[in-house]
Nucleic acid binder design. Structure first.
Lengths: 234, 234
DNA sequence: AGAATAGTGTCTCTCAGACATTATTTG
DNA sequence: CAAATAATGTCTGAGAGACACTATTCT
């Protein structure tokens, strides 16, 4: 069994009666801001804390674990990592961001397609972004930053598809954009631009529903690099 | 005196003859990729290592120190922090990126105006980006990523000014852009766009030299042209 | 037939990019 | 006046945004 170093200073009294004082590095963990579209609203997965508020999913970084693996483990205890888009957001490490502790948090940003991730992970729950509960520490600031980043990325990358299932209609895609950006978009311009960009292609299927059936499209992952090779992160 | 935890596993034999095995968090440090224009070329500050190659300036994160403070301390031992642009780049933490050690590095990206920072900091030296020496660990990859980010940021933000002194001519600014992007830009288009963006203003001064004296400009930090439009610059 | 949703084309205006000559200073 | 560098305007093509009607299916 092993034990994690926890506080700033540990005292060990060794067999020779000498005192060894060990000052550790800041403690390192990982938080994840994971977004999903549920009930036509953008939602974030949160985990309850003992002091009647909520926090971002969190995990300390295992000795043999990459930061990404830790991030995946933070919000899912499933044996196989769920299909989510995952990207590093920012590392928060100011002393004082968490009272009486020095914790450096590498924060990841994740997008989950509808239904790809349930609330199967313990007591976590999805919360609408427009009515978040009180959040621990600086987590509200972190969520706000993640949202800014999501909106910004929508404009120059194909990240919107990561919130939809494999096949989707153009109306669904447009609604996704509208929900995230918080504004209405023109249908014809939206379709023209998304189609001319060549990042989606029609599938042989149609979705039947209330009115006229809609053509289903799928995302072309191969075409992403084509469109704009302007990636912000490695 | 204190001692930093260094390796993955520490064994302590306590007075009661029981074995306490302490597995520590990954060790945390900060690296900085700092760019400057010297001799009409983009250069990066490196520190020599004992194995005949070079590394990015580095510092472990002190218990009471913010990550930014650590970053500043990594490349300058000056009592007062030098005037540099500093921004967090990415956090590298794969196990195995550094043999036999688990080190997570928060990497910062910095820009220094000409002359704002000498080589007064120990044995560090500036190296041209187009002829870098061998770099330790994954530092070559990190530098490459920092350069990508610098080029990308040039396109939508006012970051180019951070490499110039307070007052500069439009020709100098254009040369800065050309050096970083590695391509020639059209003089009239460059001037039109940079002036219409409103992020610089003329000063009462001129720089006299070989030919016709040039108008000096200064950057207007108040006109935060942060993310005004996509592709604000060439 | 009516309700519901899908699908489609044109015009205008702004802006990026290509391009060459004149202006001011020094030696 | 020659050399050196600074400063300036126009045209054109591509793409963004505004805008309204027809098509298909179901009940």
């Amino acid at each position: 069994m092993s034990r994690w170093l926890s506080d700033a200073v540990l005292h060990f009294q060794a067999s020779r009666r000498s005192i060894i004082k060990v000052v550790n590095s800041p403690r390192l963990n990982v938080n994840v801001v994971i977004f999903s579209l549920r009930e036509d609203a953008l939602q974030v997965l949160l985990t309850p804390t003992d002091v009647a508020n909520w926090a971002l999913p969190e995990k300390s970084v295992g000795a043999e674990e990459s930061l990404e693996q830790s991030a995946l483990a933070a919000f899912s205890r499933l044996p196989r990592p769920p299909e989510v888009y995952l990207e590093q957001l920012y590392t928060y490490g100011d002393p004082g961001r968490i009272p009486n502790q020095r914790i450096v948090s590498v924060v990841y940003f994740a997008l989950s397609p509808i239904g790809a991730l349930g609330t199967e992970s313990g007591e976590m729950a999805w919360h609408r972004l427009d009515s978040l509960p009180a959040l621990a520490h600086d987590h509200a600031e972190i969520v706000a930053y993640a949202l800014r980043r999501l909106r910004y990325k929508l404009e120059y990358s194909a990240v919107g598809f990561e919130l939809l299932p494999d096949e989707f209609t153009l109306s669904e895609l447009q609604q996704t954009y509208e929900t995230i950006l918080g504004e209405k978009l023109d249908k014809r311009n939206f379709r023209r631009r998304i189609l001319e960009a060549g990042i989606i292609e029609a599938t042989p299927h149609r979705r039947t529903g209330d009115g006229r059936p809609a053509q289903l499209y799928r995302y072309r992952p191969d075409a992403v690099a084509e469109v704009k090779a302007r990636r912000l992160f490695p």
